[in-house]
Each structure stands twice: as structure tokens, then as C-alpha cells.
Amino acid sequence: MTFLLEPFQYPFMRTGLAAATLAGITCGLLGSYVVLRRVAFIGHAMTHGTLPGLALAQRLGFSLFGGAILANLATAFGIGWMSRREDVHEDTAIGVFSSAMFALGILIMARTKSYRDLTGLLFGQVLGVTGGDLVWMAAAALVVAAALVLFHKEWMLATLDPGHARIIGLPMGFLKVGFLVLLVLGVSTAVQTVGAVLTGALLVAPAAAARLVTRRLPGMMALSTLIAAACGAGGLYLSYFVGLPSGAAIVLLCAAAYAAVHLGVSWKESR
């Protein structure tokens, strides 16, 4: 028993577990809309686009969370600016801009000649989360949760039936930008824990698993959040004992949860 509680003795593990749980909560909540709006590609673009912000923050010694937010905002603005032209589709803009941002991040890290740091940014360095980061991450999680509750019926209608939403006068542009802002907050919360490469999986896999076994959106969001938070904390806990990189352990747990639900549902349907 003492052996199992051992990780909790260390302050860095307690902070890390709190950060991983918060990352799971924000990604689990937002993931339902990412899956239902079929914008997983935007989620991946945002996570990759955080790298230059993280790299600059690391190099100049300011908050990684702040760096991630700035880079994410630049990514969202760049994609929006590029896709203003009718002959440039949004997925094209995402492909070009997020790759460019990712490459810029690698370039900044190459200048520091620290490939250990680069690995941490790419695949997560949850144990480097500070108390200050944790406060910002908790505030971001709170804003995401509050916005999703407050505007639940509007976001649901805009996703379920955009045509009807437009007719009754819902401001679709405002809702789209608002969702991107929440995504910026969510990804910035998770990217330090899970890494710039792997955060996309935390957004998509738990929500995709929840989608298979729920009939209503609130249930899907609740289950997705539960799976993501459990995988966040569980992955970090597991990585302590097994010696895996924490980001990889978290994402592998998410993928295992999805695979288990998928196989279970398929087996039930085949009976």
C-alpha cells in the first residue's frame, strides 16, 4: 500500500497529477465538440502550433502556459487570415500554417542546442509544471467549463443544425471564434502535460469513446471528461512506476480506453 502511495509523497508528482487532471478535464469537455463538429484537424493544428511559443518561453524563461497561449492565438489568427480567400480552404491553411509554426518551434529549439528540452516540449514535461502554471491552468479549465455550460444550447444548436441556428439569428461567427478561443485555452492547458505532438489525442480519443456509449450530449461530455481526467492522472501515475514518458503514457491510456469501448460496443452489437 505504501508502495502505491509513494508518488504522492513528492510535491512535483502532486503538482503533476493536478496538471494532468486539469488537462484531462478541459480536453474532455472540449473534445465532445471537436468530435461532433469534425474539427479534429484544427485541434491537431493548434497543438502543433504551440511549439514556437513553448520554445520561446523555455528559452527566455517565462511561463510555458503563456507561451502556448500566444502561439495558439497566432496560429488561430494565421489560419483565419489565410482562409479569408475563397480559393484557400481552411484545411489547406491549417496544413500550411501549423506545419510552419511547428518548424519554427524546432528552429528556435535548435538554436538552444538542447534536444532534451525539445523532447520535453514535443512529448510533455508534466513534472516541470510550476505552482503558478497550475493556477493559470485551473483558471483556464474554469473558463472553458463555465462557457460551455452558459452557452450550451447555442453551441449545441450551432453544431446540430447550423441552418436553423442561422435562421433564428444565432451569431455563428461569434460562436465559431468563441469555440476557437476555448480551444486555445484547452490546448494550452494540456500541451505542457502531454506535449505538442500528443495533445490532439487527448482531445479526440476520450470524446470518441464517450460518443459510442451515450445518447445525449451532456452525458457524452461528462463521460468524455471523466475518461480524459482519469487517463491524465492515471497515465502520469503509471509512468512513475513503469518509467514511460508521461505524455506517451497518458495518450496510450486514452487510446486503450477508446479501443476497449469500441471493441465492447462492437461485440455487444454483434450478439
Binding site: 446540430l160 443544425d161 441552418g163 452525458g219
Partner: peptide, 10 residues
């Protein structure tokens, strides 16, 4: 209709 008929609602 632009309705997503696979959306999880009753």
C-alpha cells in the same frame, strides 16, 4: 437540412 442526424440528442 444541415442537421447532423448522428448527433447525440433525442
Amino acid at each position: 437540412p444541415e442537421i447532423d442526424w448522428r448527433f447525440p440528442v433525442t
